[in-house]
Design a protein around this nucleic acid. Structure first.
Lengths: 245, 245
DNA sequence: CGTTTAATTGACATTATTCAACCCGGGTGG
DNA sequence: CCACCCGGGTTGAATAATGTCAATTAAACG
């Protein structure tokens, strides 16, 4: 783990910074991670990392790249459940359950740091920092998914899209991946469709509405936020569910 | 905690039974819970337990009754994000975050056992069983919500309803609350609407379709499952996401 | 240049929502 | 005992939102 020390530190620091509410435990986390971190793994764009029903034996810390957690249905439809960014932990549930019920896929080239997973019992006994990180990660993801449920269940397409853009901005800001008012992202309109649970064509129409409103503008690989206040207002965005800060 | 010992044991046993994948830690959990359990609290039907943005200082183990986790939107719409049943832990996130972003409401008369929450750092250091339970709970709920996202995003109303009924049956079975082929539940059609993210009227029509198909029959306070296989087939139900073995 | 992938547009079908009315059983008070 | 009311539940018709299909354009790339 010598060559990758600095990238490990960077990713671990992103994770730690999110977990400020855990106080001093965050430091313990760093110690745990340093002692359990192993090699770095590079995954090329489009590759599956874990597939539904597989037992994932590993624990990963994302160092760079975008990862989708999704489910493909028999009918060919797909739903993206969440996306992971640098500083996020992957396969936290492998510490808790026998198998995952969703696919993990690299949307871009991804590099992750493999963390040697202790036996479950040992982890909660001997690695309180990592235990806390896993609990925290599961809790934050739960909270994000709960908000997603609200969006999918009770917001119309415009509200859904506006909310998703606000969330993207907030999450990317938190890890220093925002430059000014432009979101740079590897998502095409089909990805948005599968995140928002609507059709590609409708995503297109909805982006056009935002653009006519001079609220946001979609372009390949980036989205310009022309009016963030309006975007937040459209979707009644309240970032507290992200638990950043 | 003397008068309530037996009910505590029953609820703790429900929790432990779900967490079999954690092996011996499950026993540690029982010890932790016994040492931290305090009084029992009764909440009458309809009462809020925690409100959005409140800091919930407590940790609760549900002993009996149904609890909704939901969000009310400004427009008057409501989305029920999840429901908690006996053996479920409430406010697990209070150990991790400053405040909740959803409401908890008693749908029926509810009785919960209050658990004295240790300081966060102390918990992960000194109560590995409880730490594991909190992580496990957050993880299972995350998994349930992920499946909910798939339903809301990519299933039509018939599939949504069928899937929800299968999930209800599985979760109630796991805690011994199923009698034969009838689900007894305190949900009216409006509750279903707010779980499935569709309108009340559409819930009604969708139940009628199931009933015409002789698949399931809605009546006040209960649902008869006439054909479980068909119900599972309609929604491609795969219970593994519940992680109940 | 051709080829490919993603974005865009219009016409039309489907699904779900809204609104309005009506039903039905279980209290409650006269 | 009956009239009334009330909270669900049920139904139909009109409307709005979103999906599907088919064709076109635009940009990206060897």
């Amino acid at each position: 783990m010598n060559r990758t020390d600095s990238s490990l530190e960077k990713a671990a620091e992103l994770l730690r910074r999110k977990m400020t509410s855990l106080g001093p435990l965050a430091e313990v986390l760093l110690r745990d991670i340093r002692s359990l971190a192993r090699d770095r793994v590079e995954i090329s764009a489009g590759r599956p990392i874990v597939k539904e029903h597989e037992r994932c034996q590993q624990l990963y810390l994302v160092e760079s790249g975008w990862v989708f957690r999704s489910r493909g249905l028999a009918s060919g439809r797909r739903q993206i459940v969440n996306y992971a960014l640098p500083g996020d932990i992957l396969c936290a549930d492998s510490m808790l359950f026998r198998a995952t019920s969703f696919d993990l896929t690299a949307r871009t080239p991804v590099s992750v740091i493999r963390i040697e997973p202790p036996a479950t019992g040992e982890m909660f006994d001997r690695f309180p920092g990592l235990s806390a990180a896993i609990a925290w990660t599961a809790g934050q993801e739960e909270s994000i998914l709960a908000e997603r449920v609200v969006s999918l269940g009770r917001r119309d397409s415009l509200e859904k899209l506006a909310h998703a853009l606000c969330e993207l901005e907030a999450r990317l800001s938190a890890i220093g991946m925002m430059r000014g008012k432009t979101i740079e992202l590897p998502l095409n309109q089909e990805d948005f469709a599968d995140i928002l649970g609507i059709s590609v064509i409708h995503v297109n129409r909805t982006f056009r509405r935002l653009s006519e409103d001079k609220t946001a503008e979609y372009r390949k690989g980036q989205i310009d936020l022309l009016n963030r206040d309006r975007l937040a207002e459209l979707s009644a965005f309240d970032p507290s569910y992200l638990h950043l800060d």
